[in-house]
Amino acid sequence: MVNRSLAFTVSAVFSLTTFLSACGALPGYSLNTSRLQDNDPTPTATYPVRLISADVILQQNRPATAAPLPPARFADPAQYVYRVAPQDIIGITVWDHPELTTQQGQTLSAGGNTTQTVAGALAQPYTTALPGQADPFGQTVSPDGTIFFPFLNKVHVAGKTAGEIRDQLAAALSPYLKKPQVDVRVLAYRSQKVSVTGEVKAPGPLAMSDVPLTLVDAITRSGGTTADADLQRVRLTRNGKLYQLDADGVLDRGEIDQNVMLQAGDIVNVPDRTDSRVFVMGEVKTPLPVSMMKGRLTIADALTQAGGILDTDANARQIYVVRGAREKPESPDIYRLDLTQPDSLLLSTQFRLQPLDVVYVGTAGSVQFNRLVNQVLPTLQTIFYLKQLTR
């Protein structure tokens, strides 16, 4: 009789399980896998694990190979000169000849209804390029690189410095004027620009002027960065090639070589910190992605921001760091930190994480057993109650 009762109980449980698995009206999500074909073989590769020690940290802190810098047109900022190009507006002064001189105190046409005084243009070498083309009081360099000047007709000025244009005009006016004294200045820089995009407060083009423009200058003139900016990985596109620069190194560590001089056509992009995250997972109080601050983050920083490890569930011997998900996903580097050792706390504050690292805290063996019991216990209770009902 007992065997028949037990057989009936098992049969009832099996029937109930089959019914519930086939019922599509149950609450919650349930994926129908009958149309999926999963033939992926079970991975058999093994990955070597390096125990984090003082030697590993010393090897990690060795200076890395510097990334290539973009080729510079001028080796030193003191060699920089601005050369006039089409759409620039220049002002010409011929002493004692006001009829040949750009009138001072008059308005400089900016196109449309916007005007700017000549004095204002001279006092603001960093002003945004004026949008207008025609100007009655300044000489706009035409697309063919020339300007019109009395007595001289067309004068080619493109590709020349203000000093070279001055000497050229003085020599050309000598047959008409006695010892002409000429001065030339650029009133509006409109031909050459650098584009600044990304996490800056005022993105847009910046006009090149007679003052050298560096990477930090461009970011500053764009209003500075936002709170999400990643200054350690500023991207510079020059002549179709992409370079990565560390503006944070310039500001914090005085790495002047990273503060490159910009040139016309450059595109500077200040990215956000999406690619500078570390993922903390496993037996921590708050699994979350942690953003690196100024490119620096240690295991201790990451675990602290995640609320620390769980006292009752975590295996303090299994603090893993998985690295290389982007460069070599098939053979990542794996490190392990044993927090039960006396020097582990110091090591956790010295081991530097890299972008997109995964910090995983393992589970204690007893906790895994308890979780298995918690999964099986409801089924055992169901069998027990059904057996009691069938008596």
Rank of each mutant, 00 (worst) to 15 (best):
A7V: 12
A7T: 11
F8D: 10
S11M: 14
F14R: 11
G24M: 05
Y29W: 12
S30F: 13
T33M: 13
S34N: 14
Q59M: 08
N61F: 09
N61W: 11
R62F: 11
P68D: 08
P70I: 06
P70Y: 02
A72G: 04
A72N: 02
P77R: 05
Q79A: 12
V81A: 12
V81D: 10
R83Q: 13
D88W: 04
I89C: 05
G91N: 01
T93Q: 07
W95T: 13
L100D: 03
Q103M: 13
T114K: 15
V118H: 04
V118P: 00
L122E: 02
Q139H: 15
V141D: 01
I147F: 04
F149N: 06
P150W: 09
F151R: 08
F151W: 12
V155H: 02
K160Y: 07
A170L: 07
S174A: 15
P175E: 10
K178F: 13
Q181G: 10
V200N: 00
K201N: 12
A202P: 03
G204K: 02
M208Q: 03
S209K: 00
D210C: 08
V216T: 14
D217Q: 06
G224N: 03
G224M: 06
A227S: 11
V234K: 05
L236C: 04
L242V: 15
Y243S: 06
L245C: 07
V250K: 05
D252T: 14
D252W: 07
R253C: 11
G254S: 07
D257E: 15
D257L: 08
L262D: 06
A264M: 09
I267S: 05
T274H: 07
V278Y: 00
V280K: 02
G282V: 06
G282F: 05
E283N: 06
P287T: 07
L288A: 14
P289A: 09
V290H: 00
M293L: 14
D301N: 10
L303W: 00
A306W: 01
G308L: 08
T312P: 01
A316K: 08
R317F: 08
Q318L: 09
V321F: 01
R326I: 14
D333L: 13
Y335H: 00
D338E: 03
D338F: 05
L339F: 04
P355Q: 00
L356S: 03
G362K: 04
G362A: 08
V367C: 07
Q375N: 09
V376S: 01
L377H: 02
T379H: 10
L380R: 01
Q381Y: 07
Q381D: 07
Y385Q: 05
Y385V: 09
K387M: 02
